[in-house]
């Protein structure tokens, strides 16, 4: 059996996936990114290699593709492909009926619309600012003295939404601290935070031309409160994926590796 790999080196998490020659995902992992991208890739790749019998190192893979911000730092990679293309392909092979993605990573937000063959039809991406990204949620959870998981469920019980006016992560953090200090309900503040990010996602998805059948990828896809807020602003039901949405970039890279490796 031939195996193909994809390694998505993100700013906060590194993900790796191996698929077989039929395209079936046989291994996947998510590890916290190290400061050196190459190290993160090595750790993630070792984990997935260990999950597949008959593989001893990345060199045993027929083809390996790097993606994510550290895409050009993946050892033994045959080539690198942008995470925009990889997320589109990852979602396409997981659920071909999905036509658009909101990918919320550690340091950026992207709206991507997908063509019928899994390639990118159009995309939009935020600029340098970290507002509305994974880092933003980390900062907010810190303000609430909660884990990310606790924070992501907090807004679900809110009866009201307290709008957060600041867009900047730093100013928003200080606004949240003020609101908490004023004794405002924590779940309603959290709902305001989720809504602020959902609005940003709305803009990205519309810029990318997304109309229906949309899903979330990236680490923030697991944020239940955000998902609910996005469904509210988009007036759409977000499609749940059968595979961990955080792995979509790596899965897309592995699928591209499969297509390119078999065509070699």
């Amino acid at each position: 059996m031939k195996y193909f790999g994809g390694c998505d080196v993100g700013s906060t998490y590194t993900k790796a996936v191996i698929v077989d020659e039929t395209g079936k995902m046989v291994a996947g992992t998510t590890v916290k990114s190290k400061i050196i991208a190459q190290e993160s890739a090595e750790i993630a790749m070792k984990e997935v290699i260990d999950q597949v019998e008959g593989l001893n190192s990345s060199k045993d893979l027929e083809y390996l593709i790097g993606t994510g911000y550290g895409r050009n730092k993946v050892p033994f990679a045959d080539e690198n492909i942008s995470e925009i293309s990889c997320h589109a392909m990852g979602v396409h092979v997981t659920n071909p009926s999905v036509k658009a993605i909101i990918d919320i990573g550690g340091q950026d937000v992207k709206g991507i619309s997908i063509d019928t063959d899994g390639t990118v039809k159009n995309f939009a991406m935020n600029d340098k600012c970290a507002a509305g990204t994974g880092r933003f949620f980390e900062a907010m959870a810190r303000s609430f003295e909660m884990s990310l998981e606790q924070f992501s469920n907090l807004s679900l019980s809110a009866k009201n939404v307290i709008p957060i006016t600041a867009q900047c992560t730093v100013f928003a953090e200080s606004e949240v601290i003020t609101l908490v200090g004023e004794g405002k309900p924590m779940d309603e503040i959290a709902a305001g935070i989720e809504m602020a990010v959902a609005k940003r996602c709305f803009v990205m998805s519309k810029k990318a031309g997304a109309t229906d059948s949309i899903t979330l990828t990236g680490g923030c896809a697991k944020n239940a409160g955000l998902k609910a807020a996005i469904e509210q602003v988009l007036k759409l039901k977000v499609v749940d994926l059968s595979i961990d949405p955080q792995l979509m970039g790596a899965l897309g890279a592995a699928e591209y590796a499969r297509q390119k490796g078999l065509a070699k």
Binding site: I81, S85, T119, F123, M125, N126
Partner: peptide
């Protein structure tokens, strides 16, 4: 050496 511009350019080239 903007990483975000680089990603956009690369994705556009791939498309």
């Amino acid at each position: 050496n903007s990483g975000q511009l680089r990603t956009r350019f690369q994705a556009f080239v791939e498309a």
